[in-house]
Amino acid sequence: MVAYVVFTREKMRNSAEYERYREKSRPVNAGHPVKPLALYGNHETLEGPAIQGAVILEFPTMEAARTYYHSEAYQEAVRHRFLAADYRMFIVEGIQS
């Protein structure tokens, strides 16, 4: 069943580290069955604390999403995101239509 990886950026702390993250994470996508659905587009917070931006990625399964996140290449990139900003990230399974 399809799965979605959702990132919400709460607070940017270091834009140089974020650029390193972007440079390192983009090539990782080519090796995984990922489909970007939302990438920091216009957004509106309706409940809870305001966010600075959001990303939604679609994967064919929860396992494919986990494989992406835990891959050596993504883990090399993500350390820069940890230095760059405060995020929430989760995987949620979709529903069959």
Rank of each mutant, 00 (worst) to 15 (best):
M1E: 07
M1I: 04
M1T: 07
V2A: 04
V2L: 01
V2N: 09
A3G: 10
V5F: 09
V6E: 02
F7Q: 04
F7R: 13
F7Y: 12
R9S: 15
K11R: 12
K11Q: 12
M12C: 09
M12W: 05
R13S: 01
R13Y: 04
R13V: 06
N14L: 04
S15H: 13
A16K: 03
A16F: 01
A16I: 02
E17V: 03
E17Q: 07
E17K: 02
Y18M: 03
Y18K: 12
E19A: 08
Y21L: 00
Y21F: 01
R22G: 11
E23V: 15
E23T: 15
E23K: 14
K24E: 14
S25W: 06
R26L: 13
R26A: 10
P27H: 10
P27D: 03
V28H: 01
N29L: 13
A30P: 00
A30F: 12
G31F: 09
H32Y: 11
H32V: 05
P33I: 07
V34P: 00
V34M: 09
V34T: 04
K35C: 06
P36M: 05
L37Y: 08
A38T: 05
Y40R: 06
G41M: 07
G41E: 15
N42E: 07
T45R: 14
G48F: 13
G48D: 09
P49G: 07
I51P: 15
I51N: 12
I51R: 02
I51H: 09
Q52K: 13
G53I: 04
G53K: 09
G53W: 05
A54E: 07
V55P: 08
V55E: 09
I56M: 08
I56Y: 07
L57G: 01
L57W: 05
P60N: 05
P60M: 09
T61V: 07
T61F: 03
M62L: 14
A64K: 05
A64Q: 05
A64I: 04
T67E: 11
T67L: 06
Y68S: 09
Y68K: 11
Y68I: 15
Y69N: 02
H70E: 08
H70G: 06
H70S: 10
H70C: 11
H70I: 14
S71A: 09
E72R: 15
E72H: 14
A73C: 03
Y74S: 02
Y74F: 12
Y74K: 03
Y74Q: 06
A77Y: 00
V78C: 02
V78A: 10
H80R: 00
H80Y: 13
H80G: 00
H80E: 00
R81G: 00
F82G: 03
F82R: 14
L83G: 01
L83P: 08
L83E: 00
A84N: 02
D86V: 14
D86F: 15
Y87K: 13
Y87A: 05
M89H: 02
M89V: 05
M89F: 10
I91C: 09
I91V: 13
E93H: 14
E93F: 15
G94P: 15
G94Q: 04
G94N: 05
I95P: 00
